[in-house]
Design a protein around this nucleic acid. Structure first.
Length: 215
DNA sequence: CCACGGATTGGCT
DNA sequence: GCCAATCCGTGGA
């Protein structure tokens, strides 16, 4: 795990437009250090939001109490509450004042699976299908990682919640599609994911993806 | 496998 | 009052 910390992504990695940052977040490691242990996983699905041009973005209508973290410049965590019971988290993107973020939608667990399971199901052991269900969606990720409103605004260059380089195992192809669960700005193809990965949200758009790039 | 509806509360008109 | 960047259980094909 020291290798994760030494490859922590620097602030300037995040200081560019969300639509550009988003595909580069695929394959990176999302890590949380708790007193009970480390929870970490590989990002496999994201969506970009940019309030300057994107009506679906929480930041589209200008700064409010809820979305102010999105305007603070890249490299912070924006956590919001939705549907009366779920949290979702974004990596803030861009330069200060622009109101951009990248929603983390799918993570492949790497470390701390028992901790994730305790948070999701109240017990440490998981079956195969339950493991896939741990983090295959934005609300599920926040439950598994124990992320709530209290973590809104956390600096991602700190030592408790951060992103790290993916290491040597990142042979995958990134594809894109329209975003999921929104009604405005549907035409933007700002959802990026690893084709065929088990931890990508199950959706019919998974069949109509477009190739985007590979590493 | 797929489609649909209910849960439940904060944010904004 | 209306609606939401979701999830889960149910019911039918």
């Amino acid at each position: 795990m020291n290798s994760l910390i030494s490859s922590k992504l620097p602030k300037d990695f995040y200081q560019r437009d969300a639509a550009e940052l988003a595909p580069d977040l695929i394959g990176k490691i999302f890590c949380r250090k708790l007193s009970s242990g480390i929870i970490a996983g590989r990002i496999v699905e994201v969506e970009a939001y940019d309030g300057r041009v994107d009506e679906a973005s929480h930041s589209f209508g200008g700064i409010t109490r809820r979305n102010e973290v999105m305007f603070g410049g890249g490299g912070f965590l924006y956590v919001y509450f939705t549907y009366g019971m779920y949290y979702c988290c974004n990596v803030v993107a861009g330069i200060k004042g622009t109101g951009q973020g990248v929603l983390i939608r799918g993570i492949e667990p790497i470390e701390g699976i028992a901790l994730m399971s305790r948070n999701r199901y109240g017990r440490r052991k998981v079956t195969g299908q339950e493991k896939i269900n741990l983090t295959s969606g934005p609300g599920k990720i926040c439950i598994a990682f124990g992320i709530t409103k209290k973590n809104n605004g956390v600096d991602l260059t700190g030592d408790r919640i951060f992103l790290a380089e993916g290491g040597d195992a990142d042979n995958f192809s990134v594809v894109c599609s329209q975003r999921i669960g929104i009604k405005k700005s549907r035409e933007l193809e700002w959802r990026f994911f690893i084709e065929g990965n088990n931890y990508v949200t199950k959706h019919k758009l998974n069949k109509t993806f477009k190739t985007f790039g590979s590493q």
